[in-house]
Amino acid sequence: MTLQLVLLVAAALFAVGLYGAISQQVVVMVMMGIELMVNGVLLAAAALWYYLAPVVDGQVLLLVVITAMTVEMAMGFAVATLIHRARNSDMTDDATELRG
């Protein structure tokens, strides 16, 4: 278990999430892809902390990353609700115009 191998795992998670975020049409599925990408970032940051600089500052940064995941989920669901109410759909193709 080395830093490089852990970063490879994180890169794989990020790439899988990127594929989902680009290829999916349902808003919630796009959010799942973004969540996977952020999870890859979280794992990479955890590995960099462990192997390069195991000090408390890095843990606080990881907490900020987790907060960003939470905010992304909350805002994503809010926008999905708005689209569903306005268009009776949850597809990204129905959200190409920024009007209600």
Binding site: A15, V16, L18, Y19, I22, S23, Q24, Q25, D93
Partner: peptide, 12 residues
């Protein structure tokens, strides 16, 4: 419910 599977896979 997907679109552009191959370009997405290539980019990823």
């Amino acid at each position: 419910m997907t679109h552009a599977k191959r370009p997405s896979a290539a980019i990823a």
